[in-house]
C-alpha cells in the first residue's frame, strides 16, 4: 500500500508582511510526480521556501506532514535530512568552498541521520564521480567553489547532481527550468526521471509547460492567489498552454 509523502492541510503563510499562501491543500503519495503551475506572483516560490523552512517566511495556520512527521516543527537541515531536496531557482555562490567538500559534508550528515555509516573521501568520490559522469559533469567542475563562476545551465546541472548524490525521498523543483536552454533542460529532466523509482515523490513548480514535455506528471495543479484552483491529469497542462492562465484562474475563483 502506498503512503503519503507530503500532506499539506489548510496552509496559510506569509512572506514578510504579506499573506501569500491561503488555505492550500495538497497530498503527494509515494512515487507520484505532481506539477504545480501558476502565473507569476501566485506564490509558487513562497510555497517551496515555506516547505524548506527558509527564514523570513511565517506559517500562520495549517499543517504539513512529511512521511507522517510534522514538517513545520523541523529545522531547515532536519527537513533535508528527512529527505526533502529543493532544486533552487537561483543557487547562491559560496566562494572558497570546493563543491566536493561541501557535498561530502552534506551527504555524511544525511547518512548519519539515516543511521548509515559515514563515507570517507574515497568512498564519497566514487559516488560523486559516478553521478557526475551520468550528468556530463567533469571532475574539474566538482573541485570549483560552490556555484561560483557557473553559467545558469551549469548551476542547474550541479543542483541535479547534488540531488542524485543525496538521493532524497522527495524532490522539489522550484522553477528549475527558468533561464535554461533546451539541452540544459533535458539534463535536468533526465536527472529527475532517473530518480523516479515508484517510491520517490516529486513536486515540480513551474510557470511553463515546457519542462513537462520531458517529465510527465501524474497530477497537474493550477495554483493561483495562494491556493490550488484546479487539479487534473497531464492534459490539464496542455489545456493551460492553449488557453492561458486567465481562463482557469477566473473559473477557479
Amino acid at each position: 500500500m502506498t503512503k503519503p509523502v507530503l500532506e499539506i492541510k489548510d496552509l496559510c503563510a506569509k512572506a514578510g508582511d504579506k499573506q501569500i499562501i491561503k488555505n492550500l491543500n495538497l497530498t503527494i503519495m509515494e512515487g507520484e510526480v505532481h506539477a504545480l503551475m501558476g502565473p507569476n506572483g501566485a506564490g509558487k516560490s513562497t510555497l517551496s521556501n515555506v516547505l524548506c523552512g527558509k527564514p523570513g517566511y511565517e506559517v500562520l495556520s495549517g499543517t504539513v506532514r512529511f512521511h507522517g512527521k510534522d514538517l513545520l516543527q523541523m529545522s531547515v537541515e532536519e527537513r533535508a535530512r528527512e529527505g526533502l531536496f529543493m532544486i533552487m531557482q537561483y543557487p547562491v555562490e559560496i566562494a572558497g568552498v570546493p563543491t566536493v567538500n561541501f557535498l561530502k559534508h552534506a551527504l555524511n550528515a544525511v547518512r548519519k541521520h539515516r543511521g548509515e555509516p559515514e563515507l570517507d573521501t574515497l568512498g564519497f568520490l566514487k559516488i560523486a564521480k559516478e553521478e557526475a559522469a551520468k550528468l556530463g559533469i567533469s571532475t574539474e567542475m566538482l573541485k570549483r567553489p560552490v556555484n561560483v563562476g557557473f553559467s545558469g545551465g551549469e548551476k542547474k546541472r550541479m543542483e541535479t547532481w547534488q540531488m542524485a548524490v543525496l538521493k532524497p525521498t522527495m524532490a522539489l523543483l522550484d522553477e528549475a527550468d527558468s533561464g535554461l536552454d533546451i539541452d540544459a533542460l533535458k539534463v535536468v529532466a533526465d536527472g529527475v526521471n532517473t530518480l523516479r523509482d515508484g517510491k520517490r515523490a516529486m513536486l515540480i513548480i513551474t510557470h511553463y509547460q515546457r519542462l513537462l514535455n520531458y517529465i510527465t506528471p501524474d497530477v497537474v495543479h493550477i495554483f493561483a492567489d495562494g491556493h490550488i484552483v484546479r487539479s487534473g491529469d497531464k492534459t490539464l497542462a496542455l489545456a493551460l498552454e492553449e488557453k492561458g492562465y486567465a481562463a482557469f484562474v477566473n473559473e477557479g475563483c
Binding site: 527558509k54 527564514p55 531547515v76 547562491v92 566562494a95 559534508h105 550528515a109 544525511v110 567553489p145 543525496l166
Partner: peptide, 27 residues
C-alpha cells in the same frame, strides 16, 4: 544568511555550516 540557509537545506547543522564557510574563507 543565504549561504547558511543553503548549507542547512542540504542537511548541515548551523555549526558545521559556519565551520565550512569559515574554512572556505581562509582557504
Amino acid at each position: 544568511d543565504e549561504q547558511l540557509f543553503y548549507c542547512r537545506q542540504r542537511g548541515l547543522s548551523e555549526e558545521d555550516a559556519v565551520g565550512l564557510i569559515v574554512n572556505g574563507f581562509c582557504r
